[in-house]
Design a binder for these strands. Structure first.
Lengths: 174, 174
DNA sequence: GGCGATTAGTTGACTAATCAACTATTGAGC
DNA sequence: GCTCAATAGTTGATTAGTCAACTAATCGCC
């Protein structure tokens, strides 16, 4: 098994365990991201676009307003408009302005979008299962619990930089 | 504590625990990435550029060849050349062609680069510690162990798409 | 020592992400 | 019902990431 120190060939060991944990977390997540990428890219969508389609399938027929989708994404992005532009261009998503509140635009997954997801469901589930096959059910539960706990602390740290819309650019004065 | 189901407001629960774990992993990693980003961006470097500087500091005076850096990065990227171009433009890194093997280019961190890292060391360590403060030392150890184990399975799944150089583009025929 | 294969890295063309600034619509208070 | 603030989303300009194709240097080996 690849200890982190070995894997990144860092000469000195980690100063703190939390630093080691943070690096392990990021490296593992990157591998998962690339595994997902390898599955969805042959169908000409990115992992983020896949994420949007999954969210919209979960949302059902009435769809969701654009920024609501952005909030639910696994990786937050300010580029939600153009992300959905690209999905709309491929006819995987359709948009319609809300009549009761004309500021909002509801996005819905199309038949084509649903068909694409159905093709990907099996491979993605298999990949997740196989990728994490090293871990027992108990270990998976434990991992999820630890990650949930970590996010509790992190949500304080990140102080929810994007309230709803774009990042609120807390940059230095200079 | 925010259960994942709640957090992403997914109507139906996860089909498998490994899927839930994969999502928890990615969401947590994204939060860590943004926390790091919030610290390093005011100094006009990206988290990836920060990662390169850290690697080069670890490598010492003799530096490292370009692609060796790419291999050690937390998030793999094929754009290593231009990433280092940007660091060189800011005088944080210097490059020098290797005399014994003129194909290689050794990259070294500059005095300015080291000075920048010194400014960031404290805040980054504090952020890691504080962010993961919800977890006890035992829990952190457990988390690292579980993540290491997960990567063992994943490295088989991802089948090391980039051997050394760029991604070897195993794309569909059509 | 010459020739094909391999390795190291760069470049060009294209796509995607980012942030600020903008329009359109709604809500709140008077 | 008018004005000011807030919300929802888009657009423009710039920067960064991606992949294929390329150059240059070295290696294997006959």
């Amino acid at each position: 098994m690849p200890s982190i120190q070995e894997e990144i060939k860092q000469s000195r060991p980690f100063r703190t365990r939390s630093q080691e944990a943070a690096v392990a977390l990021m490296r593992t997540a990157d591998m998962v991201r690339r595994a997902v990428s390898a599955i969805v890219e042959p169908h000409d969508i990115t992992p983020q676009q896949y994420n949007v389609l999954r969210i919209l399938r979960g949302a059902g027929d009435k769809g969701l307003p654009t920024l609501e989708i952005a909030e639910r994404m696994i990786e937050q992005t300010p580029g939600i408009t153009r992300l959905i532009d690209r999905l709309e261009a491929k006819d995987l998503v359709s948009r319609q302005r809300c009549e009761t509140d004309r500021r909002q635009v509801f996005c819905t997954i199309t038949r084509e979008g649903l068909a694409l997801l159905r093709k990907l469901d099996g491979p993605i589930r298999d990949a997740d299962d196989w990728a994490l096959a090293e871990l027992s059910t108990r270990e998976l539960t434990s991992l999820v619990t630890l990650l949930d706990k970590a996010r509790t602390g992190l949500s304080a740290a990140v102080t929810q930089r994007r309230s709803k819309n774009q990042i609120n650019s807390t940059r230095r004065i200079g």
